[in-house]
Each structure stands twice: as structure tokens, then as C-alpha cells.
Amino acid sequence: MLVALILAHPQGDSYCHSLAERAAAGLRAGGHEVVVVDLYGQGFRAAMTGEERSAYHGDEPICDPLVEASADLIGRAEALVFVYPTWWTGLPAILKGWLERVMVPGVAFRFDERSGKVRPALSNIRHIVGVSTYEETHSAVRITNDNGRRTITRALRVNCGFRTRTHWFGIFDVFDKSDLERREFAGRVERELTELR
């Protein structure tokens, strides 16, 4: 299947980048085609513009070629993989902005003409995968709630089909982890994604 891997870390030599490489390697070993969307690498702008907000409820809500390219990829993909650092219990602004600008009416959902309510439009997505690094310990993340994970596995998930599966990989307390522990985690991501069907 075609997999869209969305990467949201500004530093090319970051652990998130190596996790993205390992995730992609695992998926390719499993026979899947992977397209990596490196948000900082492509110069993606996080903030929705006034022009986009005005166009949001109209026929052409997309006004930027980078957003168009992502939306086109999402329409063809069968799996979405997100690799990002959890900041302030949530998605980094650039990834949050990607959701806001790409997952617009006609791409992620549509407004029902009669009731005005939101209806899902991502029935092509069979798997949603999250790979995230956390500065906090697992228990601290439980207390504040893992809002990035919730946004992806709940808010985004409800726009997919009933059978869409979610998979989550988190490495907690990441700055206090040894190189060995980091490598083990990356290895697990690669291994388990090889099995994705």
C-alpha cells in the first residue's frame, strides 16, 4: 500500500529523523511504498492564512501548492504515519498547522448539506500510526493527557472508516534514555511496521 509519512522535526540530525528513516525502512521491507513529507524540509507554513480561512467553507479551500500536494497524497494513501516530538503535551505547531490546512472540507470530511454536521471522508485510510518522543515520563504524560495522540487517534480517526486501525509508539523520558535504549526503540518501530498489512 501507499504510506504517507509526515515528519515534524526542524533538525535534520534529530532522533525523530532517524525514527522516520527506520519507520520508512520497515514499511518498505514490508513491501509498501512510502512517501515522506518532511514539513520543515519542504518549508511548510504552520499558520492558516486569512485567505485560507475565508476559502474554508467554499469550493476551493486549498490555496497553496504544498498543501495541495499533501492533500493529493492523503487522497491516495492507505496509511498515515506521523513522526514528531510531543511538545506541551501535544503536536508541534507545524504538524497542528498541517492538519488544519490539509485536512480541510473535501479532503478529511465534508459538511452534510442538510444537517450541517461533519461527515468523514478518509475512508481510504486503513492505518494511522504515531511515533513520538516525549520529554516527560510516562506517568507525567498520563496525568496531563497525551493530547497529541488524542488529536491523531481520536479527532483525525473519526474522519476515517470504521475499520481504520491505530498504532502508537512512544519513547518517554527521551533525554534521559541511553543510546542503547533509543536504538532499541527505533528497532522496535522498524520491526513492527514491517508487519503492517
Binding site: 504552520a46 492558516m48 503536536l91 507545524i94 498547522g97
Partner: peptide, 14 residues
Amino acid sequence: WWAGQPAMLKGWID
């Protein structure tokens, strides 16, 4: 938007 602060405001927090 999408269950949380807009990217602009999340960026201010980040």
C-alpha cells in the same frame, strides 16, 4: 481547530 489551539497559538506556546 482539530480539537486544540490553532497552530499559530500552539507555536506561541512551543
